[in-house]
Design a protein around this nucleic acid. Structure first.
Length: 406
DNA sequence: CCTCCACAGGAAGCGCAGGAGT
DNA sequence: ACTCCTGCGCTTCCTGTGGAGG
């Protein structure tokens, strides 16, 4: 019993015990891929997509559709909702239709996009080994044979086009005669409003038979959405309104991104639970915001290439040592010292200069060019993040551990 | 007015890894 | 299994630059 003070688990358990009720009752409702039953402020988009797809119920081909909107505006949720409802309707009316959802960025390659389409319509294809064109023609043959009506939703379609060009889209949109009496409709979802310009004219005219834009949510709309989600996810009375308002305000000020707002709400509620609080309050939201920022930074740090990390360490050391000037020359000196200490060959000044500008664009340091006249021209470099965060993030790296300690 | 510092940053090329075509 | 191609990280070489001090 007297070991409570030293036992980290005991604190957690007793906190959980002391709490009369949990804050969260349905954790899933706060996940970013959760599709709610009710989608506020999207009725217009909902009905448009519904109308567009409804011809499938009378066995004629719906037009292809392009959906635009920034991240977190509900594009994916609305499309998935409509297709799932329609799928249920087709099922109950015995109409042979399939709706396939594919995130092309997750899939990663043209081949895997096609194999998702294939498995979505019930056709087995090997994981690998076939040419892309072979998979495509198998799919077409299969659809022709079965007379399948298919709607393919391609999420983050801009990624597909940017990495592999629009050939696949061309093949898919122009295959109607090869698969008759079946047909294939495409719904492309893109975050990038300029995406259209990257498409060739031949694909563009076919793919964007219809277009739909999702505007960002306003702060008040975000609030309504959050209140609704909170109602689903939390036990009644386990949150106060100010906390929700703050969530909406903090994430709405940027681009009306509902996903970020919900993420913030989820993390805030986890903070509150860990604290053993009975209610989600504003302070938890503020902590969560900090945590998100910090996670973002330390994540960026971890994925940095080794030498970029060394350069970053060097800038911190240069700032410590010299009183004022962290010139690129000074940074390069510390950097070389760090390299010899860990038995690495240092890179050239040119490259380090490039790495510094990269760190600058990442927002990890700030680098501005200054002129000291006779005494040359250099970049003045100051770290933009605290030593503690850097050290914590880099201490997981075997190469760098001993450099930080010394 | 010229000089010259201490770099910035563009251009070109090199070696390597991984992916596609055969 | 092999070539070919491409992208990437890096180096080498280079020209450019604002202003303090002569």
């Amino acid at each position: 019993m007297q070991q409570h003070q030293n036992d980290p688990l005991e604190g957690i358990f007793s906190n959980a015990l002391r709490r009369k009720r949990n804050i969260i009752s349905n954790r899933d409702a706060l996940r970013s891929d959760y599709v709610p039953e009710h989608l506020p402020f999207r009725t217009q988009q909902l009905t448009t997509i519904g109308q567009l797809l409804s011809p499938i119920l009378s066995s004629s081909r719906p037009s292809n559709l392009l959906v635009y909107g920034k991240t977190g505006t509900g594009k994916t949720a609305v499309t998935r909702y409509v297709t799932s409802r329609l799928a249920a309707k087709c099922e109950s009316s015995k109409i042979p239709a399939s709706f396939v959802y594919c995130n092309t960025k997750m899939a990663g390659t043209e081949y895997r996009v096609l194999s998702e389409l294939a498995s979505g319509i019930g056709l087995k294809v090997p994981f690998t080994g076939l040419a892309v064109s072979e998979v495509l023609s198998r799919i077409q043959a299969y659809m022709k044979e079965k007379g399948l009506h298919t709607v393919l939703v391609m999420d983050e379609i801009d990624f597909l086009v940017r990495s592999f060009g629009d050939d696949l889209l061309y093949d898919l949109t122009s295959s109607s005669d090869k698969i008759a009496p079946g047909f294939l409709s495409l719904i492309g979802i893109s975050n990038d409003l300029q995406f259209k310009e990257e498409l060739g004219a031949r694909v563009l005219s076919r793919l964007s038979e219809e277009e739909l834009v999702f505007p960002p949510y306003s702060a008040t709309e975000l609030k309504t959405i959050l209140v609704e989600r909170a109602g689903l996810a939390f036990n009644s009375g386990a949150y106060n309104e100010e906390a929700i308002n703050l969530c909406a305000a903090l994430s709405g000020s940027e681009h009306g991104d509902a996903r970020r707002a919900v993420d913030l709400l989820r993390i805030a509620s986890e903070v509150a639970e860990r604290e053993g609080a009975e209610q989600l309050e504003e302070k938890h939201v503020r902590i969560a915001l900090q945590k998100i920022d910090q996670d973002r930074v330390s994540e960026a740090l971890k994925t940095l290439p080794l030498h970029a990390k060394l350069v970053l360490l060097a800038t911190m050391k240069a700032e410590d040592d010299s009183s004022l000037k962290a010139s690129s020359g000074a940074v390069y000196e510390r950097y070389c010292a760090l390299c010899t200490k860990s038995g690495l060959d240092p890179l050239t000044t040119r490259r380090v200069s490039g790495l510094l500008t990269e760190l600058d664009t990442l927002g990890l340091v700030s680098a501005t060019v200054v002129n000291y006249g006779r005494y040359g021209r250099t970049k003045k470099i100051t770290p933009q993040i605290s030593h503690a965060v850097v050290e914590q993030a880099l201490s997981s790296d075997d190469y760098l551990k001993h450099l930080i300690v010394s």
